[in-house]
Amino acid sequence: MSTPEERAVLVERGGLGAPEEERRAIRVARRERFALLLRSKTFLAGITIFGVWAFCAVFGELVAPYDPLGGDLAAEIGNRLQAPSLSHPFGTDELGRDVLSRVIGGARDILTIAPLAALLGTALGTVLGLVAGYFRGAADDLIMRPVDAFLAIPPVILGLVVLTALGASQWWLIVVIGVLFAPIIGRTVRAAVLAERELEYVQAARLRNERAPYIMFAEILPNVYAPILVEFTVRLGYAVFTAATLSFLGFGVQPPSPDWGLQIKDTYISINAGYWWPTLFPALAIASLVISVNLITDGLSRVLGR
């Protein structure tokens, strides 16, 4: 009896004979992997925390006890900077807004920006990596040389300078992070494609006179999905990191949005005066989100065998 991993490898290499049998084997392998994933404690913990934030991002208004933007500010100014209590579990900020509601509301900002940025980066990087790895030679040099130069500049610094030029906004933030990440993902995909392109099934496709885009996207891409999926979750973690950092510096989401990085930027000065709650809770939110993404990555990369 072979292990699910071994069977999966056999299936991916297309070595299991009759098409029907092969399709069934693929389904079995997939189900076994999924079961393996669900048995991993770290993965389950990660998915649970992530799920809570995703729920807040979608149904924030229904869960939050107050309006994260404060509604009638003049009425609430009397509530400003109240320590955590039963009516305000996370306290209130300097404008009298409920911190718990703002933390719940902030989930939507980061969970819009980070996944979109990671998705954009992965899509761009996959195309770059496929083209560079499949064609090698001139195309490879043309793509990988600038990539090397690009990687020499720290991403936050590059993001800072570019976002100043473009103007700070949520949408530019997504584009900039996506483009910054594409070369890194491109490198991983290229390495996977280099190993894959020498295999028989690619040669067979070439002998059938298939066109290059077909071979790249229909033949090679399904076989390198595992490293791409893992890379996507890794990048998702870094996208949260970079987006939060740039928002903290004031180059991302703009006020009065309850974005977590922005909340910390607006409140950290008053920690010295003893008002720690408007800063601590969004910071804990960011930390728990990145840790959950990391646990998911860890579980996935174990099951997908990397």
Partner: peptide, 11 residues
């Protein structure tokens, strides 16, 4: 490593 510097700083 994945938690941003400013979040660590706040803690």
């Amino acid at each position: 490593t994945a938690i941003p510097e400013f979040v660590w700083a706040v803690f």
